[in-house]
Amino acid sequence: MNIARDTALELYRVMGTIRRFEQRAEQLFGENKIWGTIHNYSGQEAVAAGVSAHLRDDDWITSTHRGHGHCIAKRADLGKMFAELLGRETGYCRGRGGSMHIADTSKGNLGANGIVGGGIPIAVGAALTAKQTKTDRVAVSYFGDGGANQGTFHEGLNLAAIWALPVVFVLENNQYAETNPVRDAFAVEDIATRAAGYGMPGVTVNGQDVRETYRAGGEAVARARRGDGPTLLVMDTYRYGGHYYGDPQVYRSKEEIEEWRAKRDPLAIARDWILTEKLASPADFDRIDTEVDAAVERGVKFAEASPPASPITLPEDVYAT
């Protein structure tokens, strides 16, 4: 599949934005400016960028506790994201939810979710809405290998298959459910074989190469949009950081991390591909990197200049008015 220059550079920009956002979020965390915890998406950028590139603003996603990348790839506002992390009134949830609860229904982002596997039935429900209202909207559910062993996965995939719903299940296999390696959590070699148990296609994808995630995501989204039902995409990927900020990571080796960073970095792979195919020059990357840095800094500035969430308004937004 040939990917045009504009698309290639946009994929690179989205991945770069995610990477830079996460770096700044960790810095802010280190400066004690972030409440609660954060889960870093670095290393997995090609997954969200490649799949969500096929989504319109009226398509839906559900996300996870490791959700910053999904939000950014669904075109979230960086300022409102940082504001949410910093507990500011201008954040997506008025600073009440923090990192794990960023939702933006104006962009079809039904929300990050602190419950592992919790987004899956929500995406299936959204897809049911699309079918019942006879629209061609599509839902994408991002979740991890740990989420795939929750009952919600089973119930969600079964219903989606029976009713041929327009939903794409993106299983981000980052090799660890917190500390538990996939080999201790699955008795099958190829997780994509799970799809056959529901009667839907299951595809294993190199989640570090954005060409692959873009291609597989495009096919699955198109299949859903034309009414042919759900797909399970198993994206092999890796998180560079710990499960959470401060995770001592006694369950994996430094060599393993270095190997993925050195040989399978999604940004490096994308640069190589784009340069090799002469879709852009090094100067183009420099320009994009500068723009990304500036956009992220604007977001941080916006958040830091915003007022903190007021305890007096805490009970607001609990019930519908």
Partner: peptide
């Protein structure tokens, strides 16, 4: 047939490696 999109319950076992 409205409960599952596969022909047999037994088909589900392979998904778990049993």
């Amino acid at each position: 047939k409205l409960q599952m999109a596969v022909a047999n319950v037994a088909d589900r076992a392979a998904a778990y490696g049993m």
